[in-house]
């Protein structure tokens, strides 16, 4: 039996697959959708897969840039990014957590110097990749709600 697609194929753009089930909305938030976007976006949530459930996001006519990929890694560490050109997968890569996260997450400590008016970007060291744990380079606190603190 022919496999039925939950969302139709796109001609050009990005398909983000294998997003941790329930996190598609957060991925949209990272991509600035819908606030700053006029691109057509399709979302499928809780889709059955071999690994259990997953979410999928398809963005038409937009190829996402590496900085956005790093942000996605924070909330969907097993996601795959497919760049689609003329219905074909032109590039495919897995998101990868960097050892340091710079300028992406704000520190949860209100009295951390990185939250004051200083000419520095927030900076976190990744201390564990699965489950994800990060500590602030400046105040050494560990934020619990990482996805809520993405800038």
């Amino acid at each position: 039996m022919k496999k039925e697609l939950k969302i139709p194929r796109i001609k050009n753009g990005t398909v983000i697959d294998h997003i941790t089930a329930g996190n598609a909305i957060k991925v949209l938030h990272i991509l600035g959708i819908p606030k700053t976007s006029t691109f057509v976006v399709s979302v499928a949530m809780n889709v059955k897969s071999r690994m259990g459930k997953k979410d999928i996001v398809k963005v038409e006519n937009r190829e996402i840039d590496p900085k956005e990929v790093d942000k996605i890694a924070l909330i969907a560490p097993k996601a795959t990014i497919n760049i689609i050109r003329d219905y074909e997968v032109a590039e495919k890569y897995l998101v990868k957590l960097p050892d340091e996260i710079i300028g992406i997450v704000s520190c949860s400590n209100p009295t951390c110097v990185s939250n004051s008016r200083e000419p520095v970007k927030s900076r976190f060291k990744v201390i564990c990749k699965d489950p994800l744990r990060i500590i602030c380079y400046y105040c050494e606190r560990e934020p619990e709600d990482i996805s809520e603190r993405i800038i």
Partner: peptide, 24 residues
């Protein structure tokens, strides 16, 4: 503020000694 000495060290060639940074 926590992390102030770490920040100071980033902007200084001279060695920085932390004499207490908030609750840090």
């Amino acid at each position: 503020q926590e992390g102030a000495a770490r920040l100071a060290a980033e902007f200084s060639e001279a060695p920085v000694l932390n004499a207490g940074d908030g609750a840090g």
